[in-house]
Design a protein around this nucleic acid. Sequence first.
DNA 1: GAAAAAGTGTGATCCAGATCACATCCATTT
DNA 2: AAATGGATGTGATCTGGATCACACTTTTTC
Lengths: 193, 193
Amino acid sequence: MFEFLHQKVNETIKITNEEFEFAKTLFIPKKLRKKRFLLQDGDVCLYTTFVERGLLRSFTIDDKGNEHILQFGLQGWWVGDLYSFLTEEPSEYNIEALEDSELLLITKSSWDLLLDEVPAFERYFRTLIQNNLIATQRRLMGTMSTTAEERYHKLLRDFPDISQRVPQHMIASYIGVTRETLSRLRSQMVSGN
Amino acid sequence: MFEFLHQKVNETIKITNEEFEFAKTLFIPKKLRKKRFLLQDGDVCLYTTFVERGLLRSFTIDDKGNEHILQFGLQGWWVGDLYSFLTEEPSEYNIEALEDSELLLITKSSWDLLLDEVPAFERYFRTLIQNNLIATQRRLMGTMSTTAEERYHKLLRDFPDISQRVPQHMIASYIGVTRETLSRLRSQMVSGN
DNA sequence: GAAAAAGTGTGATCCAGATCACATCCATTT
DNA sequence: AAATGGATGTGATCTGGATCACACTTTTTC
């Protein structure tokens, strides 16, 4: 159950076996079936979650009822709503399993404890958040300076298998266009290129 | 010179006087005049920078020559290109002073040293990056789900004095529209509301 | 303090992508 | 295997914001 987390943590920091054994006691394993929700908007995000296997998505729903996907949570990724998790304010995000998934949950108090007791984890999370920030800034600048088609190609490059695993309308919602626009884009690509 | 940094750091973590005195030795004070650049795209971002006073902006220039502003760096904020700073790859960003500014620069090696020697700083930066990530994610979702007008109002709410301090065309470039569109938006607001 | 440069407003026109409306296709479920 | 609901394709039309063009104003610079 903890193999993937162990591997991921080891990639960025040095950690002793005792430290990791301690960390293991703080996580709550959970299986989540396809189409089930880990978080619904309006609820407080009580856990930050590591994806051991499976696939999740986090998304908001705007006033007009349209969904906007913030993130796909693949194996080895973390998902959650940081703001709600830290402040215990109600979340604006939904997190849903797109495939049967195996997760490791950690509560705020356990997380605080882990950071206090194992400084290496503080560094691990700092690095994690740092890389996430870099990627999110890029995505933001991308939405301001590139076309839908360029964003689609970039997504295919960055996550080659995602288009086989999730429906097209969710990919559309990730790159910030309607499903119709993405559909037309794809048919142009087949003929034109 | 270090008053503001000290204050900001103290807001999030507990730090001893010795620790802060040590930190001070790692920063390089620098004055940057209006219109001068701290970083130009193509160069490696050698410093992460704290703004003691003044105002900077970081932005990219796309293929068509349009500027896109990632961030305004006000007093008490950090600016830099994290990716380039960490990897020493050439940056895609430009950082320019919009007002005469007083800055505190820190190199990658000093930064690494600071994080190793003073764990409280690791926590400070983790918190800082964390809050930046939350804000950037919100801005990203905002560009996907709200109109230019809503984004403009949000900017005015979040940074009430920014519209007095920077030209309108930069505000347009921050919210992701052309200067013409923002101009029309503003004249509609005067008449319509 | 004159000239140059930077910033803003506003009209005319254009276009990427949204919206609306169906048709079709595919996967579960019973 | 029929039925139900999710997913996709595609036409017709609409629209927010971009682009182009030029006038005017304010700020810098020498």
